[in-house]
Design a protein around this nucleic acid. Structure first.
Length: 563
RNA sequence: GGCUCCAUAGCUCAGGGGAUAGAGCAAUGGUUUCCUAAACCAUGUGUCGCAGGUUCGAAUCCUGCUGGGGCCA
């Protein structure tokens, strides 16, 4: 990144009259072919402005640049100006910077302490933790870590699905068939079974539906019996989710879910009424959004019940007033994009200038045979089972490859969970994912364990080489290390891109690229061999280990020292 | 029907308007008296969904079409 900026500055000296710095920087590219150098500048745009042959422009620019410091070779090839950087100088600068900054390499202060509220994970209590919630959790977690690295403060909110008529049904079902012991033992599965049974039996017995409604009414009115059960379901569910969060290394600043906003919705309705934004439509109260080309936003049903949107409006306002956010991010599936458009539009109409600071970071669904996975029917894939299976597989691999390893369980957890998390983050969040256990458990190729393995090997080298970071004078690198050095240089730019696009996959891809570059180097160069390069090679290895670990950390993945 | 997302190698996906479109998986073959073989190397594959347009230049930007996903009191 630094080197590209330098190149842009040098070009600006020549072409500043015709192109500004930003344009020049944007035109610079990294050539695909190694023979084309480290950076290239195509002269077509200048050719248009100067009305001259681009090849001539490139040639002249090459002649002028030749003397500038930092370049090993400058070459005009057709319309391209190709530069080869001075490897010793550049490598020294990059490595020195990483040695000095260590895991702070890539940090910035663009956030200036601004608060980002991250609505993430948000599973429904009494229901299994789905793979969709896994996506929200790991994407949100990674984005908040990235934001923190850029100087933002984050507030992670687990907006639990802990309210709704289904809890009336659940209480009814529990009262009829439930067992305290079973629920305690296996909360989610037991509650889900009760819920399914309720629906099955309700088909033949309408009285049951009525009973469910009654229980929900009692819950809403705060009757002790109903409330106690609901609280218990909630606490037991949360406890079970906590096991998953612990494995994922995720924690929250708030688990205020839907129920928390029960007493905060009337205020929203009042404001909407006061501002005369409510209109009646088919007996319901709605906010008309036709000027935004959106369907009306439902605020209150004909029976007076408030709706999802009202609750989210209350939550948005509450978060603004409580956390004073600069940005409020919702990591929620893309099937809800209309809802968030409506939410923003209503907030704007309510006169909240911060409506623009609300961002829906959407993601694709997990599909099964090309279709949306259904949580009904009881045929669900439990995330926890997948994680356990991944951990078992990692354990098997350890027994086979490194049986003497200390602390096998924790390493297996890091690697198994790393595989699942990386699999979720490596592709762009917009893409739908076809469910494949095989892919999730994969440990070779572009996977989390591959990157972790590369890190572990690097650490092993440093141990065996008795490397002491502070003692080492960084001075250049051998020729074979150059691709690795260039990759190291790119890290800060990758973090920025990931942040600007709310896209953790940028970092996942980067970390694979760096690992590939280093593995290639490792395969061809004996790092621990005594000789003039040994110190530099170890310094490079150290820098790689820092960046791999930090990149993985930003994805929410641990990097064990050995595996 | 309206809005929206997607279409690149057999599969999963990268490709910030630029040079010969790349990885991984899968397949085949090779590399450990030597730093962890969860690694590395080699081999093959493409009407970048279709048709126009903008541009010196389009997988990339625009429009339309086809096919698929999603959302819409």
């Amino acid at each position: 990144m630094k080197i590209k900026e330098q190149f842009a500055a040098d070009l600006q000296k020549q072409f500043g009259e015709h192109l500004d710095r930003h344009n020049i920087y944007h035109l610079i590219e990294v050539p695909k072919q190694q023979e084309h150098g480290d950076l290239a500048f195509p002269c077509y745009t200048l050719s248009g402005k100067l009305r001259r042959n681009p090849a001539l422009i490139a040639q002249e620019a090459a002649n002028q640049l030749e003397d500038a410091a930092g370049y090993e070779k400058v070459e005009a090839v057709g319309a391209y100006l190709n530069v080869f950087l001075n490897k010793q100088l550049t490598a020294s600068a990059i490595l020195a910077r990483i040695m000095e900054e260590k895991n702070n390499y890539g940090n910035s202060q663009v956030g200036q302490g601004d608060v980002v509220v991250m609505d993430m994970s948000s599973p429904n209590i009494a229901k299994p933790f789905s793979l969709g919630h896994l996506r929200s959790t790991v994407i949100g977690h990674s984005l908040s870590l990235i934001a923190e690295k850029r100087g933002y403060k984050t507030v992670r909110i687990n907006h639990l699905g802990d309210w709704g008529t289904q809890f009336g049904k659940l209480i009814a079902a529990y009262k009829k068939w439930g067992s305290e012991e079973k629920v305690k033992q296996n909360t989610i599965q037991e509650l889900l079974a009760l819920y399914i049974r309720f629906h099955e039996e309700a088909e033949h017995s309408p009285a049951l539906e009525e009973e469910g409604r009654l229980w929900f009414k009692q819950l809403e009115e705060g009757h002790a019996d109903a409330l106690a059960l609901w609280k218990w379901f909630r606490a037991e569910s949360l406890q079970e989710f906590e096991r998953i969060y612990k494995l994922l290394g995720v924690s929250f600043d708030s688990d205020n879910g839907e129920a928390f906003f029960n007493d905060k919705m009337q205020r929203i309705v009042d404001i909407l009424e006061e501002k005369q934004l409510l209109t009646e439509s088919e007996g319901a109260m709605v906010v008309d959004l036709s000027e935004d080309n959106l369907p009306p936003c439902l605020i209150k049903k004909s029976d007076g019940a408030t709706l999802y949107a009202t609750r989210d409006l209350a939550a948005a306002v509450y978060r603004k007033e409580t956390y004073h956010f600069g940005n409020s991010v919702y990591v929620v599936g893309n099937e809800q994009s209309l809802h968030f458009q409506q939410l923003k539009a209503v907030l704007r109409k309510m006169g909240y200038s911060w409506w623009e600071d609300i961002r829906h970071v959407s993601f694709g669904m997990i599909l099964k045979e090309g279709k949306k996975m259904s949580t009904r029917k009881g045929k669900v894939i439990l995330l926890e089972d997948i994680l356990q299976e991944a951990i078992e597989l990692a354990k098997t691999n350890i027994e086979e490859k490194n049986p003497g390893l200390a602390d096998k369980q924790s390493v297996a957890e890091n690697v198994g969970v790393g595989a699942v998390v990386f699999h979720d983050l490596k592709n762009h969040r917009h893409n739908d994912i076809e469910f494949s256990l095989e892919d999730m458990l994969r440990v070779e190729g572009e996977t989390g364990p591959y990157v972790q393995y590369t890190f572990a090997r690097a650490r092993s080298l440093l141990r065996k080489g008795g490397y002491q970071p502070a003692a080492e004078e960084v001075n250049g690198c051998d020729r074979e290390a150059w691709p690795v050095v260039k990759q190291l240089d790119a890290f800060p730019a990758v973090i920025n891109r990931a942040a600007e696009q709310d896209d953790p996959s940028q970092i996942a891809k980067y970390v694979v690229d760096l690992a590939q570059a280093f593995n290639k180097y490792y395969a061809g160069t004996r790092i621990l061999e005594e000789g003039k390069w040994k110190g530099q090679r170890l310094a490079l290895t150290f820098a790689v280990s820092i960046v791999l670990k930090e990149g993985l950390r930003l994805l929410g993945i641990h990097a064990p020292e050995e595996m």
